[in-house]
Design a protein around this nucleic acid. Structure first.
Length: 190
DNA sequence: GTATGGATGTTCT
DNA sequence: GAACATCCATACT
């Protein structure tokens, strides 16, 4: 098992996210993540614990869901021990279960665009502030799992997306060759 | 294909 | 006011 935020971000590529909302089940295989480790100026926990980011300080494996740009939610996984603020952003999924339901929630959209991007996947899976703070290893409505089929993906690393304070470190991880990845697919040397 | 700007609400200066 | 871990429609090459 991973022992820190960056390892967890890599580890999560290929794993499943499942949401069962009163019997309406959607799921997807993670194809893209970003790490926001301790001390990272771009991380939401950088300025200390607040009401908004409190879930980042829960023990590894809890959901941190935040509202962004007045319209979208983003799903993160807390990544360190309790009391330490850090997390992994889930940026893109390959849709698996509940594809019709996801299309309905997203409005007309191609399969490829359903969950390609953090705001899109949260909308498709109906993840919102109700899910903030859930234990993704224990909860019965939103959880992380292992795919049925053996995972053969190759994980590559690049710089993160959409940050004004990015420092060009390879903390974005994605499945090489996947059509469901949201942004540039170029490997940076490390 | 790339580029640009607007929508929208919460949080912080 | 301004910034924000975004997305979509529109215009253009």
């Amino acid at each position: 098992m991973p022992t820190d935020t960056i390892e967890l971000a890599r580890f999560l590529v290929g794993k499943m996210v499942v949401h069962d909302l009163r019997g309406e089940r959607t799921s997807g295989r993670i194809v893209e993540t970003e790490a926001y480790p301790v001390g990272d100026a771009a991380g939401h926990a950088f300025g200390g614990k607040t009401k908004r980011n409190a879930s980042l300080y829960l023990a590894r494996g809890h959901a941190y869901v935040y509202f962004i740009y007045g319209m979208y939610y983003c799903l993160n996984v807390s990544s360190e021990r309790a009391g330490v603020g850090a997390g992994v952003l889930i940026r893109a999924l390959e849709p698996i279960e509940g594809i019709d339901l996801m299309k309905k929630r997203r409005g007309a959209s191609s399969l490829r665009d359903l969950t390609r991007g953090p705001g899109r996947l949260a909308l498709a899976m109906a993840i919102d502030r109700h899910d903030d703070g859930l234990d993704l290893c224990m909860d019965t409505s939103l959880w992380l799992g292992v795919p049925d089929a053996k995972y053969h993906g190759v994980v590559a690393a690049t710089t993160r997306i959409g940050l004004s304070r990015e420092q060009a470190r390879p903390w974005r991880f994605y499945e090489r060759g996947s059509t469901f990845v949201s942004g540039p697919r170029v490997v940076t040397p490390r």
